Simulated assay, not measured.
Amino acid sequence: MKRMLGLAMGLLVSFALQAAERAPVSVEREIKRAISDLPIEAVYKSPIPGLYELIVGRTIYYADRSGRYLIAGGYIFDTRTKENLTQKRLEEINRIDFSKLPLDQAFVSGDPNGKLVLAIFTDPDCPFCRRLERELEKLHGVKIYNFLYPLERLHPNARRHAEAIWCAKDRNAAKRAIMIEGHDLSPPKGCHAPIEANLKLGSKLGISGTPTLIAGDGRMHAGFMPAERLRAWLQGR
């Protein structure tokens, strides 16, 4: 037993020493040059061969020898193309069948004859959803299906605003009035909006935040995107 403990302690010490070993100057220089927008203070060898620790303030990132691939926050980034490779892969493996979305629970905005299609799960009071609305006005040739998805635990008035949009004579005008112009609208009496159905659908699809975007090929993306980047994403670029 003592021998086993001694071996275990020896391995731990060995790993600790290996992790603390400074990377060769040439490697450190190459990584810093490749990731010049990150204020790297020092580069050390990690316990995994070919992977290096990057010290940035009180945070540690990881990168390969060339500095092209960066690991941060559980994601792998291509520093050359600025792509989040982990997010891209997640979108590929978590695709849904767009044709099976209950589009009668959504309303159309954008270009009704657009060749590109987009579904959005949106909360009328979500700051990033409102920011996205301004970007969508710059997006041409895209047919957008809006699923109203109010998160009341975060935005107490979101459901009322969602119902006001759905039950308005002009849903897009009401959406703009609330989400871009900042008006406080309420639904008419007897309004029946598919809010509960949308919440159940979102839960089934694993949607926990807004905005959540779904491309025509079934890829999903959680969060805001500017118009130019959104168009490229819809086109699979």
Rank of each mutant, 00 (worst) to 15 (best):
I55M: 04
E228W: 01
R134Y: 08
L148A: 11
G57S: 12
D64R: 00
F147C: 10
T79G: 03
V27C: 10
P47G: 07
P150E: 12
Y149S: 09
S46Y: 01
Q87R: 12
R89N: 11
L132R: 03
H221Y: 12
P124M: 12
R80D: 05
G114V: 09
L17W: 13
Q87L: 15
G236Y: 05
I55G: 02
D123A: 12
G202K: 00
A16P: 10
S208P: 00
G73Q: 04
S203V: 00
C167T: 02
S203Q: 12
E137V: 15
T59G: 04
L85A: 11
I71C: 00
L118Y: 02
K32Y: 06
L5I: 15
A227D: 08
P194R: 01
Q18F: 10
D125A: 01
A63M: 06
G73S: 06
P112S: 03
D64Y: 00
A72Q: 03
V13C: 14
R237I: 06
P102V: 00
L103Y: 02
G206M: 03
C191Y: 08
R22G: 01
I48Q: 01
K88V: 11
I71W: 03
A174F: 07
L54R: 05
P47W: 04
R65M: 04
Y149Q: 11
K175A: 14
T59S: 13
G216F: 09
L85F: 10
A197N: 11
I195N: 05
G110Q: 09
A42Q: 13
G10V: 14
E133V: 13
L70N: 02
L230K: 01
P24R: 10
A23M: 07
